[in-house]
Nucleic acid binder design. Sequence first.
DNA 1: ATGAAAGCGCTAACAA
DNA 2: TTGTTAGCGCTTTCAT
Lengths: 355, 355
Amino acid sequence: MKPRLQDVADRAGVSMKTVSNVINGYVHVSEAMRAKVLAAVEEVGYRPNLSARNLARGRAGMIALVVPQLDMPYFASLSMHVLEAAEEQGWVVLIQQTRGDVEKERAVLSGRFAQRVDGLVFSPLRVTPDEIGQRSDRTPLVLLGERPADGVADHIVVDNVAAASLAVSHLLDLDRRRVAMIGNSTVGTDRQRFEGYAAALAQRGLEVDPELIRPVPSNRGEAGEAAMNAILAGPGPRPDAVFCVTDWVALGAVRSLHLHGLRVPEDVAVVGFDDIPYGRASTPTLTSISPDRAAVARAAVASLSAQQEGDREPREIAVGFELVVRESTAGMGASAFVEPAALDDATLPFGRAPS
Amino acid sequence: MKPRLQDVADRAGVSMKTVSNVINGYVHVSEAMRAKVLAAVEEVGYRPNLSARNLARGRAGMIALVVPQLDMPYFASLSMHVLEAAEEQGWVVLIQQTRGDVEKERAVLSGRFAQRVDGLVFSPLRVTPDEIGQRSDRTPLVLLGERPADGVADHIVVDNVAAASLAVSHLLDLDRRRVAMIGNSTVGTDRQRFEGYAAALAQRGLEVDPELIRPVPSNRGEAGEAAMNAILAGPGPRPDAVFCVTDWVALGAVRSLHLHGLRVPEDVAVVGFDDIPYGRASTPTLTSISPDRAAVARAAVASLSAQQEGDREPREIAVGFELVVRESTAGMGASAFVEPAALDDATLPFGRAPS
DNA sequence: ATGAAAGCGCTAACAA
DNA sequence: TTGTTAGCGCTTTCAT
């Protein structure tokens, strides 16, 4: 049926081994030989059978990417990059969704997986570092973002403190002085972002006003809207800027401001976090911290490769980010839709990862 | 190392074949035997090696999903559903992006693929039905949405005419009489949506006013914004409603209306197409046609299964859709963020596909 | 530098 | 109903 390695060997008049050597880029093959084999490959239209190759090599040929939900813009974009990074390593990516279900997350950790995989890129929402540390499965694992990893596995992170600080400094640079924050100041990633927020204020000699901090029960738009409503209903003078822990939350805050008849950014400037594509299409377009997702993806895949090679020291790996300035802080004059191709325009580079 | 079929057989004191029978759900196995084998599977912690299974069965164990770009909300959501549908068939999904590159699309068609796959779910942007018809590769193929297929392969579609007609009828029900359309009236999917638009108008005895129709060079937000600007700059009285061929375009139109000081929906009602998640977070939230993506995904996977079983008659398969009414037509009083869980609320059911 | 042959773990004829 | 065994297509010692 489909041409096999043997067919190529026959056509070229050599052994399977030689063909295999050529295909796998083994160095000690004469140029003439290589050319001859390659020609034969062309002629018969050969393409390797990955199932067989993986069986022989003792690997699965795929890794799993476990995310809460693929239709969340951040994870959609991240997945795109993981796909690309994994392809370079000859890995196919099996994407699995947890939808924030603890049981599903546990199942993933304990290796109860539909398929056997060479590695696991996991973006947990619920499981604790303890649980992760105690897992029995030996599949290489790398954790993404959000929850702390406490050294139980490789962990790819952006420097949330620095990023938040950059975002808030941008607001202060615009002469805003009452900068609110929507997000939890005591827990997880939000806490780090709060630290950055506080640090930026401190740098200008400003104090944190607890009235201006509102936690959100979830990172959804409606939560952001409710939190903004609460802030506006507070006793003190109205804030002139808001830093939101995610873009979804920021979109909700913008909505609330709108409904209160306040203009963004004239009355209140808004900055988000994540740089989801929608931030480019909203009215106004949304200023946001943009994690270098491509770098996250590359680092994750590289980590799995390294672990497969036997490297089992858990590391924390930081990747870069940028502040993308759009209308929600810079005003309507800034730019309209800033779509990917033109993304560089309104961008302040920052801490790009070396690789 | 990892337990193999033989290990289970040894543990249970039976042959590999018996274990294989149990694992694959072969019917003629005694209950006692089955229980014994299952116990042994548990004890040794066995999980099948898919590479080996696929090699033996002569299948790849995966299908490819080829989309323009994974971080576009529509495709992100679609991918999510394809993942789920494929999993039920024991298929892993390899996602590949074309980014609208004709060459990449051609490569896919001609089977120049990184991996060998059992089937291809392809959402083309550029290649013509002719090219598709002439492909030499015999891998089962199913086409999604957009471009017509002309009977060269299975094709999953929503009834664009009916959907557009429903959207426009909704506008007319709100007593709008000057309904504009942003989208190309002469080509591809847009043409079908135009037909629906025209049909809805005709049903009320209204005529199509060419002044109110604007094509867009792309389905991006900025194109929608430009088109809306053009319509507003037109000579006749201003429209009181707009039907946009995609949500991105609609978001751009909303933006344009905003910048012109017009209120949505009081002055101009807007309806989009696709129901991208952002439509739930925008201000105002966006009324839209929501294709039944889960059904699209199921139908696509089912098509590949059927083709694998030897069914090679190309079919056109229609799936259902709904009109999701939100603020851009119903007004701010309607509802705030309508997120998935609560999605049913503001929904008019329509033409759900049988399966 | 190239060839011969032994598996990788599983499925499916064929036997029993 | 269960067991035996020959491949599936490739990689990889071990020879040459």
